[in-house]
Design a binder for these strands. Structure first.
Lengths: 350, 350
DNA sequence: GTTCTCTTTGAAATCGATTTCAGATCTGGG
DNA sequence: CCCAGATCTGAAATCGATTTCAAAGAGAAC
């Protein structure tokens, strides 16, 4: 491997000069040219490990995500990658598997490897602890989920608004017993989406669109907590269908659980849009799902891109006040929420 | 940050002794205990950057994959991660996007960061160049795709056998005009799967199962090359359907293209199993696709796991002869290849 | 008691870059 | 022609670990 010393020798200068050539120090043009030529001839590339050690900061940023198999996060990862590439940082992806210990381990690695910074989609709102990073001055940005009390920039989506819009849409489509399958208790995303759902129901109760049935609390009876995975969606949906008075629509608070819910519905012979289904977050290969699925669209790529930009500012030394950027969701209305009445079949094409 | 020197001072020993305690040198038990206690109290964690610099080798392995959004590769990545975790290595994921330049850049980073080794699913069989790694003694393992002439261990699937089995299955199901949508020319996986398809057709022609129609070469007429992505599958399928004498079944050489093909078929009102569809590699959320899809099952997780194990051996210094491990595929027969005749509908459950 | 061996220890070199500091060179002004 | 100030340059320190080497100490054999 050719080192800076080799280049220096070849160019007849000192290593310090070589370093200056590549890091923008003052060097006479003639010498600089000699150094560059020598470096090119020898195929010199600075050893990043040595650089990191000396500068006390690497050129890699860590991206901790809870589920690499969820396309939402892979898309987010691409956003981060694209933004990072623009400034020569590289991204390493760490899959925490929604597991607090794995997450802690990866945070430790980030510190030990002296990464330039980290972007974290926290495994838990209450347990994820970013303070060791802060203690060592490593910049961090929370994305998608905001861990409690962490003093970091955050890029989030407007979960409450999205949940509200989704539920309102179902109400407008004349569904009246709308269930909500949300994520784990304690995850900020779960709670906020659920809050949106409840807020929409409360409004509907207030203006008479929805009339309370006796017995259960209408804001709670149809709510189920699950785990943001396909299996959890299946279990929750099965449970809802077995109710004495089952729902006629469901708002599922994440894409994978929506897949699970759809599977269960299909197996039970219950099909949208008679039974309304609305997913928070796009489902992959949505084109294959019939009827097509109404979704709350999440700006996953932008989430990642924005987070990376923010992180870069911090790495560059910005000490602006902490920011929280909230990105808006959008509602893509498709066939699965057409309304509970059986509609006339569309005439076949051609 | 607490360094080895701090610990040494706290324990009243030299840094060398502290290092020995953690790296298995000979130290008297009493001292070792003192060192451990001091380290624990100070929360000492060795600085990996310094370690890497000194040892000339890091504790991170790079995994270069061409498409992070293909669940085949994310599953493979998990295999790598699980295997790596067992020996304290961490994995960083690099998405090359089937792009030779991005791939080259990441290989450069792997070298500059002194990674312990790399696992590569090559972006191109002909252009991917692993020789810089070899030149610097960095261990590498090829996975899924074998770059031409690279002197590295490889873990592959038996593509030809899988393609053959798939095509034979379609023939047995009495499809007679079987198309093949394969990947880019030049990718080893494309070529081998296509070769399997052709070999099965040749056998069928030889034993009379299949009779050549006049005009086109039966081994070529129904073959289309595409790009291993959804869009490519769509285009190829559209093209096939527009033929004067369209096929009655298709063997699609990767999962994403199968999704594209299914979309086109659905839009055209052509449905399996009258039109047979067989995908090489599982389709995500297969449960939502109706009719269910017959697939060649790929051991993606095992592929990654095995590759990581192999790499670890090399990192540990093994100089065994180069190995190529070939893992078998399996055929999961489902509804989409039930045969071209319209079958009586199954009686409803219950 | 002396010598020899074996274990344990710490001082110092090392990895490859960056950066400080002080000296050398150059410039322009007086 | 000399000097102040600006500009360049290289020697050496530094980052935090590992590892070599030599010395000190312990123990055994005679």
């Amino acid at each position: 491997m050719t080192t800076i010393t080799d280049v220096a020798r070849a160019a007849g200068v000192s290593p310090a000069t070589v370093s200056r050539v590549f890091n923008g120090g003052r060097v006479t043009p003639e010498r600089a040219a000699r150094v560059r030529r020598a470096a090119a001839e020898l195929g010199f590339e600075p050893n990043r490990v040595a650089q990191s050690l000396r500068k006390q900061r690497g050129s890699v940023i860590g991206l901790l995500i809870p589920d690499i198999e969820n396309p939402f996060f892979t898309s987010l990862a691409r956003g981060v990658e694209d933004a990072a590439q623009q400034t020569g940082l590289s991204v390493v992806l760490c899959n925490t598997d929604e597991d607090i210990d794995k997450e802690r381990r990866y945070l430790g690695i980030a510190l030990a490897e002296q990464m330039a910074g980290v972007i974290v989609a926290a495994a838990s709102r209450t347990q994820t602890d970013l303070s060791p990073l802060a203690a060592r001055g490593m910049p961090a940005v929370a994305v998608d989920r905001r861990p409690r009390g962490a003093l970091v920039d955050a890029v989030l989506v407007d979960n409450q608004y999205g949940g509200e819009a989704a539920t309102e849409h179902l109400l407008r489509a004349r569904y009246r017993r709308i269930a909500c399958v949300t994520g784990p208790e304690g995850a900020s995303t779960s709670e906020e989406r659920l809050a949106g759902y409840r807020s929409a129901l409360r409004d509907a109760l207030a203006d008479g669109t929805l009339t309370p049935e006796d017995g259960d609390d209408p804001l709670t009876a149809y709510v189920r907590y699950a785990d943001f995975k396909v299996g959890g969606g299946r279990a929750a949906m099965t449970d809802l269908l077995s109710m004495e008075r089952p729902p006629d629509a469901v708002f599922v608070a994440n894409n994978l659980m929506a897949v699970g819910a759809l599977e269960v519905l299909r197996e039970a012979g219950v099909t949208p849009p008679e039974f309304g289904v609305l997913s928070f977050g796009g489902v992959p290969w949505a084109g294959l799902v019939r009827p097509s699925l109404t979704t709350v669209e999440l700006p996953s790529y932008e989430l990642g891109f924005t987070a990376a930009k923010l992180l870069q500012e911090r790495i560059a030394g910005s000490d602006k006040a902490l920011q929280t950027v909230v990105l808006r969701t959008g509602l893509s209305v498709r066939d699965s929420t057409g309304g509970p009445e059986r509609l006339p079949a569309p005439s076949p094409p051609g």
